[in-house]
């Protein structure tokens, strides 16, 4: 059967859609690039690092196609001011404990919408005279499908607690609302999206994400030398109990807990402790111990040195503090 010559879009309209896509994709690419340094979790860092380049290529393809449609190359344009507002909100979370919020914005809200929009566009782009645009959309659809699956996998890993799931839900509801108010990234009331059947995403496309999670969780147990494990437990218990005499027995001669560290340690009551980092520095060990309580937590970094069979603290500092308001 001959392919239809009837078209849905004019060249001018097609160019506008590409400028609209380019606007949100470019901003997302720059946000992901900037967030890598602000995100503590390795799995999320690697996810973002992988996708920045894909998005740059999408932007580039849209930008290069534009002059072929009688428009200026590499020009981005929001469909309306509400799209810009949506993107401002998407970029907002920059704090280290907001990885879930960052990922929800990109992987639960924007990318599924972009994927549906690209699919809707592809379904309507004429196969006789729009193959250059169709080829770009086909590549973007393939990439975005992988991105969404991978992002969801990382989100399930990072937002596994009820509290984190609730944060994700609230974040998604807010951004979904803003995107709907904007009428989607092309500002047309999401007509393309709503009238296009969306195939379910294949979970076997998320291999990379599973590997990122494996790499993040690779350390099964710290190789703690004999004797040091007991010392770490006793020292942490003394910190929790604020037992000055017990603490002083673990300190090497000439070592004292400084005023600033003492002030941080005494800022709240702690009930539990656990080792969160265990590093080597020559023959010595650097240990991070997290003290947790209902009012918050602190992270204590101690450097341990051995003298014969005895382990002693050669230096101590508080390197992290997370206190909840009373």
């Amino acid at each position: 059967m001959a392919q239809p010559l009837e078209g849905t879009f004019s060249a001018e309209h097609s160019a506008r859609l590409l400028r609209n896509y380019r606007y949100v994709v470019e901003r997302t690419m720059r946000a992901l690039g900037g967030w890598i340094a602000l995100t503590p979790e390795l799995s999320a860092k690697l996810l973002m690092g992988r996708h920045v380049w894909d998005l740059a290529q999408h932007c580039d393809a849209f930008g290069r196609r534009l002059p072929e449609l009688r428009a200026h190359a590499h020009e981005s344009e929001p469909a309306n001011p509400a799209v810009a507002t949506f993107m401002d909100a998407l970029e907002e979370p920059e704090a280290p404990d907001q990885t879930v919020e960052r990922l929800v914005g990109v992987y639960s809200v924007l990318k599924p919408h972009l994927l549906a929009t690209y699919r809707g566009h592809l379904a309507r782009a004429n196969p006789v005279y729009e193959p250059p645009t169709r080829r770009i959309l086909t590549r973007c659809i393939e990439d975005e499908t992988k991105h969404v699956v991978a992002g969801e996998e990382i989100l399930r890993h990072l937002a596994s607690t009820p509290a984190a799931k609730e944060r994700a839900r609230v974040r998604q509801a807010r951004l979904d609302g803003l995107l709907t108010s904007a009428g989607g990234v092309v500002g047309d009331g999401m007509r393309l999206l709503l009238s296009t059947p969306v195939e379910p995403l294949r979970s076997d496309l998320s291999d990379d994400a599973r590997e990122f999670i494996r790499l993040e969780a690779a350390t099964a147990a710290w190789p703690v030398p004999e004797g040091l494990g007991d010392a770490l437990t006793a020292f942490a218990a003394a910190l929790v109990a604020r037992d000055t005499d017990a603490l002083s027995r673990w300190l090497a001669p000439g070592v004292a807990i400084g005023d600033a560290a003492r002030e941080n340690l005494h800022a709240a009551e702690y009930t539990g402790h656990r080792v969160v980092a265990f590093a080597r520095l020559g023959h010595q060990h650097l240990v991070k111990t997290r003290l947790d309580g209902s009012a918050g937590s602190v992270v204590v970094l101690s450097r341990w040195t051995s003298a014969g069979d005895h382990w002693r603290v050669a230096a101590l500092d508080v390197v992290g503090r997370d206190l909840r308001p009373a």
């Binding site: 690419m29 720059r30 946000a31 992901l32 690039g33 900037g34 967030w35 890598i36 340094a37 860092k45 973002m48 690092g49 992988r50 920045v52 380049w53 998005l55 740059a56 580039d60 930008g63 590499h74």
Partner: peptide
């Protein structure tokens, strides 16, 4: 280096587009 290249993608939106492309490739 990944974090630094990512910041270069983010920090310089006024730089030539090809600069952003090179920095994005470096992030990957």
């Amino acid at each position: 280096a990944m974090e630094g290249a990512g910041r270069s993608v983010c920090d310089f939106p006024e730089a030539p587009w090809e600069f952003t492309m090179d920095m994005a490739r470096q992030v990957w």
